[in-house]
Amino acid sequence: MTVRKLQQPRGWAFSFAVPIVKPLLLATTRRDWRGGERIPATGGFVLVLNHVSHVDPLLAAHLLYDHGRLPRYLAKSGLFRNRLLAFFLRAAGQIPVHRATTSAVGAYDAAVEAVRRGECVVVYPEGTITRDPDLWPMRGKTGAARIALATGCPVVPVGQWGAQELLAPYTKVPHLVPRKKVTMLVGDPVDLADLSGQHDEQGTRAVAVQRATDRIMAAITTLVEQVRGQQAPAERFDMRRGGTPADGHPQDRKDTA
């Protein structure tokens, strides 16, 4: 069900991918898009979602495309190691992120510029698929908050559930039959207005960014609770405390002894 028609040019990469990917998603999933009218029809904004499966970016792109927007992702740099894939991803406007390096600043600058050009930048604030045992949202990273505070753009939260049934976390074999129900609930923009001025003041910047991040994760978690009909843990899972590596399978835990 297309709610809004795409107004911006797709470019060759999306023109190539959409006729292939969208029919596959329609054949393997049942969509339950809720609150899509809250996705801005025009202008730059950041879309933030919880992360439960490697197919999440395809499903988020489907949601946005059905509401007349194209996604620009902050994508792991490892995806750009293949030259052909890197060529395609860059043509589609995706932004490589080199984690834990000085190059990450370049990704932040590119995301800020994309928002200022009026584009939708998609961010998974957890930084990776959740390591929470019950797949609840984890403690968030600050990238989405920093982009929002730098640009003053809306931050639109989404709570999603069901993608893990299509492709379980950290697995490679999808379960295509029967079709899996995927629910995405779009919430109201996260109110960060009171933090914008603090972000510009020396000495309070880090506090403002963390408060913004906490609000973003709280909004996402509330939406996930509504979708799942359950209550999230009082404290969000923190990979740093659990000795869980930032990349790879969650069972590959660091030796903290």
Rank of each mutant, 00 (worst) to 15 (best):
V207D: 04
L176P: 08
A60M: 15
S53W: 11
E126D: 13
A41H: 07
F80K: 00
L166T: 13
A150H: 00
A100Y: 10
V112L: 09
L176N: 07
V182E: 06
V97F: 01
F88R: 01
R99V: 03
R81F: 04
M138T: 08
T42W: 15
V18N: 14
T171G: 12
G187W: 10
T256P: 08
A111I: 02
L47Y: 15
S196Y: 08
T29H: 15
I129V: 12
W136G: 03
P178A: 06
D32T: 09
T171H: 07
D252T: 12
K22S: 07
T171K: 07
L26M: 11
R146E: 07
D238Q: 08
S103T: 07
Y170D: 12
A232S: 06
P233S: 07
A144M: 03
T2F: 02
A114H: 09
L64R: 11
P40E: 11
R179S: 12
A144R: 01
Y124A: 12
H199K: 00
G118S: 05
V112E: 15
G203K: 01
I216D: 01
V52P: 03
R241E: 10
A107E: 01
A163I: 10
F45Q: 10
M217N: 06
V224L: 14
A41W: 13
E126W: 04
L24T: 14
R34C: 13
P9Q: 09
L135S: 13
H249P: 09
H54P: 13
V158M: 07
T142E: 14
E126M: 11
E165L: 05
A17P: 06
L166C: 12
P137E: 03
V115P: 11
L223D: 11
V156H: 02
H62S: 13
D56M: 05
G159Y: 02
A212H: 00
P245V: 04
I216N: 03
A100V: 11
V209N: 00
A219T: 01
P250L: 08
Q94N: 13
A212Q: 01
A75K: 00
